[in-house]
Design a protein around this nucleic acid. Sequence first.
DNA 1: CTGAAAGCGCTTACAG
DNA 2: CTGAAAGCGCTTACAG
Lengths: 338, 338
Amino acid sequence: MKKRPTIIDVAQAAGVSKSTVSLVLQESPLVKAETVELVRKTMAQLGYVYNRAAANLRSANAGLIGLVINDLRNPFFTEFATTAQMAFSAKGYATVLANTDEDTSLQLQVVGSMIEHGVSGILISPSYGDERLCFDLLARAQVPTMQVLRHVDRRCDLFPLFAPDNHRGAILATEHLLDAGAKKIAFVGGLEGRSITDERLSGYLEAIQEAGLEPIRMLGRSSRTFGRETAIDLSENHPDIDGAVCFNDLVALGMLSGFNQIGRQAGRDFKLIGFDDIEECSEVWPKLSSVSCDIKDFAAEAAVTMLGWLETAKKPEPVRRGGVELVARMSSLGNVSI
Amino acid sequence: MKKRPTIIDVAQAAGVSKSTVSLVLQESPLVKAETVELVRKTMAQLGYVYNRAAANLRSANAGLIGLVINDLRNPFFTEFATTAQMAFSAKGYATVLANTDEDTSLQLQVVGSMIEHGVSGILISPSYGDERLCFDLLARAQVPTMQVLRHVDRRCDLFPLFAPDNHRGAILATEHLLDAGAKKIAFVGGLEGRSITDERLSGYLEAIQEAGLEPIRMLGRSSRTFGRETAIDLSENHPDIDGAVCFNDLVALGMLSGFNQIGRQAGRDFKLIGFDDIEECSEVWPKLSSVSCDIKDFAAEAAVTMLGWLETAKKPEPVRRGGVELVARMSSLGNVSI
DNA sequence: CTGAAAGCGCTTACAG
DNA sequence: CTGAAAGCGCTTACAG
């Protein structure tokens, strides 16, 4: 296993100086076309591969971006991460990715590692909890960092936030269930004190109170399993509850499974709506209503904003909210449309 | 935004030479404990961050591993990628990840980018199609590369393969449905000519022929939507078919949705089994039987094998198959157990 | 349009 | 146990 050729090898083989080779690599217009071709041919012959680490040592831009995700197994975050990574890739940036599994000490470790690797910027959907050390480290290292999806560190002037308008989305969802005829609507799933839950719950509360109704909170883990258990429990013990705004689609999909199990039909017997509009919503039966944050667009937007920051050195506004949209399907409508 | 401090700054501030600082960074036993402490304290004060790119320039091991995935939105691959990334992270390696979206030209591009970034090795679940250029590039660049999950490039001596024993898994699944009383079993989903499909289909064919039955192929996309459509089509046009071995869980979950829609009950009216055993299998109702490749263990194994290759420079065996296991649940059993 | 030289932030022998 | 010097593979002014 011999060493890879360097620009010096290429220069020798092509009979030019290494500066010229370097200029060719940078696609400088200064080099004569023939020389460019000669050098490229030589590089191909020698199997030359560009060494970014060396280049970076001088010129600072590593072409690496860090993506830190609290729960990569959750399809909502998977979609976000995948879309962002592909957007970076399309602009020539490679992505260093880490799942933190909602663990802030892991988060601290991976962020440290990314800084060492010289990422030019970091997009982080943070874990809840003891985040201070991590963000302080980012501040010290002066790595441009955007918080996305979750509002965790309060210093949005330092770490600009970009997140969907959860509050408004929950209002839309609640009003939709009221319009669909639901009389007693619960909010199911999500844990208090977490930014996304608080934002969505507050929208639900606002709409419920607006309608002069009593709110019903059934908070809990944001999992299919919690949704399924709640659907069954609720049908047995609170048969009068006839609608649910779920914290997210996983909870709603779990409720759907629960209803299937006990023969209750969402849409006809119960008005159900999720949040996030993951792909599966339109692939299950009955199809699940949801609030879309257009996660693909959102992720692409986030990526573009990050790249804009890196390339213009102009920091994005401290807080920015992405649009949300109601997507009504059978689980809240009851007829076999859509 | 001033420059980050370097080891020279640290050395000056601590009153030692930069070599000493370097040795401290490498945790060399040569440095006196007091000196170590002094240097560490100084680094903390100055907010020093290690520059791996520079270190790598001399010492070769970048501490970066590439992970190339054909479809990161598919939960099976998400689980694989996430587990592998976390295993690398636990050993101090950062992961550069790219989704290729089943696109071999994208795959070529991201692999090139990873090589430039100096990854020490690459774990690739390749896209089907025109993969030659990509693997040739890897061979030229001499980057240790393992193919996982899919057997695409035939040169396993160069690019060792690690994949689940799909053939055996499909035999287990088919025999299980026969034991459960199914008389006419179809194979649903998957596209011919792709290694995973071919391996699973061949297992099904072997078991069906062994039982003296006629095989029924209903190949197609590996999506929930295809599964749902097939379930409905099959119930209308082939009511005698009473069992299905699905290419993967997504197809089977789609069939489950389809059955829910038309009021047919998997388990009681139809014996259904998926493949991969993703988490959702035990979260839906009725719970979905599947063949587990123990994807978490598999991914951890793959990561360990890769790291072993990097650290011992000993290439893994050309072909290695991971174990598979039948997981029988309600969708093939019919009773409300498990 | 091309070449010679310095330097990016580390590590690595080699002295002492 | 610590220091002085060379070098990793590039880029960047600066000449010519």
